[in-house]
């Protein structure tokens, strides 16, 4: 029996949906919903997590992430400019830094930083306590990634823009600051926002270092709750809080990308 390509596509789509439906139903029937709810969304434990879940854990996650993002952005911009510099040593330093911090797991950076700094500089500490330490440790990793993004953005600004600025008498620094960088950041806003999403999740690495309760962020909060209640509800609640941050950011990214597509 001959089928038109259109018809064949419809049939194959139908089969895919049918298989998907069967899988979903099978899982739904096989799962033990009662126990699941007891384990993940326990009605007795959940209320006890408030208000600390928001006022301590979510708040700290946002603080750490924001601190690391701002620090990483500034350092990333400096590194990007160094990579594009005509001065050899600047380029080498930046390249080494970027390759190192992109190539090493953030977890190891974090541990090395937290335990290594006091050994290297006895008696001194970063200002800002936990916040300062987290900002710098996480920011170093973020900076390495953002530097590459920012460099790509700067290179994506047409050469004619610099030429126009220079022909008006602007110095190369002036042209970079007033003409190139503002345009570069428009281009890279979507990937930078993705970077913010990754940093939000990476801030969970803070659970590695010894903290007092007021410094808990979401993951630490969830794990401590897990130990206390021997129940996954606190961790699950923490996961939902991450989504509270990351999903809106994803939506924003998709909007920006759609708008950029339309402008093209």
């Amino acid at each position: 029996m001959a089928m038109s390509p259109r018809k064949r596509a419809q049939v194959s789509r139908g089969i895919q949906y049918a298989v998907l439906g069967v899988v979903v139903v099978a899982i739904a029937l096989a799962a033990d919903w009662g126990t699941l709810q007891q384990t993940f969304l326990n009605g007795e434990i959940l209320p006890e997590l408030f208000p600390d879940l928001f006022t301590v854990a979510l708040k700290n996650t946002i603080y750490y992430t924001a601190g690391a993002f701002v620090f990483g952005l500034v350092l990333g911009l400096v590194l990007a400019l160094m990579r594009l510099s005509s001065v050899g040593p600047y380029r080498w330093i930046a390249t080494t830094f970027i390759e190192f911090f992109r190539g090493v797991p953030a977890l190891i950076v974090f541990i090395g930083f937290y335990y290594g700094l006091p050994v290297a500089f006895p008696g001194r500490a970063l200002p800002g306590g936990t916040f300062g330490t987290v900002t710098v440790a996480l920011g170093l990793v973020g900076a390495a990634y953002m530097a590459e993004t920012i460099r790509a953005g700067i290179q994506a600004v047409p050469k004619g823009q610099v030429e126009a600025a220079r022909s008006l008498g602007m110095s190369s620094t002036r042209a970079m600051v007033t003409i190139v960088i503002p345009q570069a950041f428009r281009i890279i806003l979507p990937p930078l926002t993705n970077e913010l999403i990754l940093l939000t999740k990476d801030s969970s690495l803070v659970y590695l270092i010894g903290l007092s309760f007021s410094d808990y962020e979401l993951t630490k909060f969830g794990r401590e709750g897990l130990n206390q209640y021997t129940n996954l509800t606190p961790l699950f609640a923490a996961a939902l809080c991450y989504l509270l941050i990351t999903v809106p950011l994803s939506v924003v990214v998709r909007r920006m990308e759609a708008r950029a597509d339309r402008a093209r």
Partner: peptide, 29 residues
Amino acid sequence: DALRARIGMVFQQFNLFPHLSVLDNLTVA
């Protein structure tokens, strides 16, 4: 830079600054 400020240049591709309004394009330098 001082010398270039006295030599106006107009390009085939215009090279206006797209992130600035027309007025800002004319005032920035």
